[in-house]
């Protein structure tokens, strides 16, 4: 039951970030929606699924994925914004 609830909330957060991707009218505001809400949604879905399986290896894999996502989501946003002219610091 708690698995299903966590997965539902996580999917709702992913939907929210997709709505934000549509509604904001600036590239950087869109990136704010996608980096925060999406990684939180996947975080909740991963916790829900690993509670369902309740297995040592599954917890380890879930922890690995969570750490990896939280390290790389800001880095991805950073590298996308560096490819845009507006987002660079002037030398």
């Amino acid at each position: 039951m708690i698995t299903a609830l966590l997965i539902l909330i996580g999917s709702v957060f992913i939907l929210l970030s997709a709505i934000g991707l549509i509604r904001y009218d600036d590239l950087y505001s869109r990136m704010q929606a996608t980096t925060k809400a999406t990684s939180f949604g996947v975080f909740l879905i991963l916790i829900g699924a690993s509670i369902f399986f309740n297995n040592y290896f599954v917890y380890l894999k879930a922890l690995f994925i969570i750490i990896f996502i939280y390290l790389t989501a800001p880095l991805g946003a950073h590298s996308i914004s560096k490819s845009d002219k507006e987002g660079r610091l002037e030398e």
């Binding site: 299903a4 999917s11 709702v12 992913i14 970030s17 997709a18």
Partner: peptide, 8 residues
Amino acid sequence: SLGILVVA
């Protein structure tokens, strides 16, 4: 939840 993800 699968339906929500399809909408997203």
